[in-house]
Amino acid sequence: MKPIPAKILEGKENGVFDTKIVTSPYFSTLFHFHEECQINYVVESVGTRMIGDSVESFGHDDLILVGSNIPHVWHNSKEYFISSNHENKAKSITLFFHPDKILDIFSQFGNVKTLADFFQLSKRCMRFKGEAKLQIKNLLMELAEETNVLQRLTLLTKILHILSQTKDYDLLTGAGYTNTYHLKDNDRMDIILKYIFNNFSKEILLEDVADMIHMNKQSFCRYFKNRTQKTFVEFVNEVRIGHACKLLTQEEYRVSNLAYDCGFNSLSNFNKFFKKIKGSTPREYRNKLILS
């Protein structure tokens, strides 16, 4: 999946910030990046999101900040694309804001070091939680409906204040992550990622995927790791474990069924990778969810 540069605020009246509400049968699968930071609140939808080198399942009430020029995509579960009556819906509210333009404006009124430090940290991307998540999503929904310019600026300032002060978040991308995608790439990554996202629950052979984009195994492994900063096996297992974490939020779901429903060929193999990626066993992970 080749990320492309997107022009988000170009041509807008102020070019500083804007909001967007998406309501459709499914989200666009376009893998892209842009100079603007992006806060995305998933009102309704499920699937897999890829942000930089982070691959996780997402669901309703997911609140994520994507930093400047970090490739990202929200890809719905395959049920969304095959539903004939569109019972599945995808709704999100997004705020885009240009960090450099924000700093230029606010620097006229005082020191902006705290905000500048936050924009730098935002390149690690964030998943919000707790009180900060509640406050941000409420302000975001209010901002998306507001038409008065002064009120919109006030709401934006409140959101930026919370963002620059809160510790209620988890960082998503690795400390050393950099955008290594090349615009001269063709659509090979698009083919690979969509195939993984749609087929992770069954066996995926490296040889088959390499053949899909007309590469031998060795060339494919180098190509894939250069683009994702993960080996192919690591990437597929993270997609599977991310889906397992989503299933563990369903109290009626039996842990013993997880391995095979997520594409692992044995329970022991599943438990090994789950603990490696999440730092706990599936049962321990569910217990933490219950207590939190």
Score class of each variant (00 low, 15 high):
98 H>I: 01
83 S>H: 07
82 I>K: 13
59 G>D: 14
60 H>L: 07
88 N>V: 05
85 N>L: 02
65 L>K: 11
61 D>F: 06
95 L>C: 03
102 I>H: 08
62 D>T: 15
82 I>W: 03
64 I>D: 03
63 L>V: 11
95 L>N: 01
95 L>G: 03
77 S>Y: 10
89 K>Y: 00
76 N>A: 15
79 E>L: 12
87 E>C: 03
91 K>F: 00
64 I>P: 07
83 S>D: 15
93 I>E: 00
70 I>P: 05
70 I>W: 04
94 T>H: 04
95 L>E: 05
64 I>E: 09
89 K>S: 07
66 V>S: 06
97 F>G: 08
61 D>Q: 12
91 K>M: 08
99 P>T: 11
77 S>C: 06
71 P>E: 11
59 G>H: 04
84 S>D: 13
76 N>T: 04
96 F>N: 07
96 F>I: 01
103 L>N: 02
100 D>A: 12
101 K>N: 11
88 N>S: 11
88 N>I: 01
82 I>P: 00
100 D>W: 02
100 D>E: 15
78 K>P: 01
65 L>N: 02
95 L>V: 05
74 W>E: 13
60 H>W: 02
88 N>R: 14
77 S>G: 12
67 G>R: 09
96 F>W: 11
101 K>G: 00
75 H>N: 13
75 H>Q: 08
87 E>L: 10
60 H>F: 08
91 K>R: 15
98 H>Q: 13
68 S>Y: 04
84 S>I: 10
59 G>A: 12
81 F>D: 08
63 L>W: 01
61 D>Y: 09
100 D>Q: 14
66 V>I: 15
91 K>V: 09
76 N>C: 15
90 A>C: 11
72 H>N: 13
74 W>R: 08
72 H>P: 03
90 A>H: 07
66 V>F: 05
90 A>E: 02
85 N>R: 09
101 K>Y: 10
89 K>D: 02
59 G>M: 00
58 F>D: 08
80 Y>F: 15
84 S>C: 04
97 F>V: 00
77 S>W: 11
95 L>W: 01
91 K>N: 12
81 F>W: 06
80 Y>D: 10
80 Y>H: 15
89 K>A: 06
62 D>C: 14
63 L>F: 09
74 W>M: 11
85 N>C: 08
99 P>A: 06
91 K>P: 00
68 S>F: 10
65 L>V: 13
78 K>E: 11
93 I>P: 04
73 V>C: 07
60 H>P: 10
74 W>H: 15
92 S>T: 14
72 H>A: 03
103 L>Y: 07
62 D>N: 14
72 H>Q: 13
102 I>L: 01
80 Y>W: 07
88 N>A: 10
62 D>W: 10
94 T>D: 15
97 F>D: 07
78 K>Y: 10
81 F>N: 06
89 K>E: 12
77 S>L: 09
70 I>Q: 04
78 K>S: 06
60 H>G: 09
96 F>R: 00
65 L>R: 05
74 W>S: 10
75 H>D: 02
78 K>N: 14
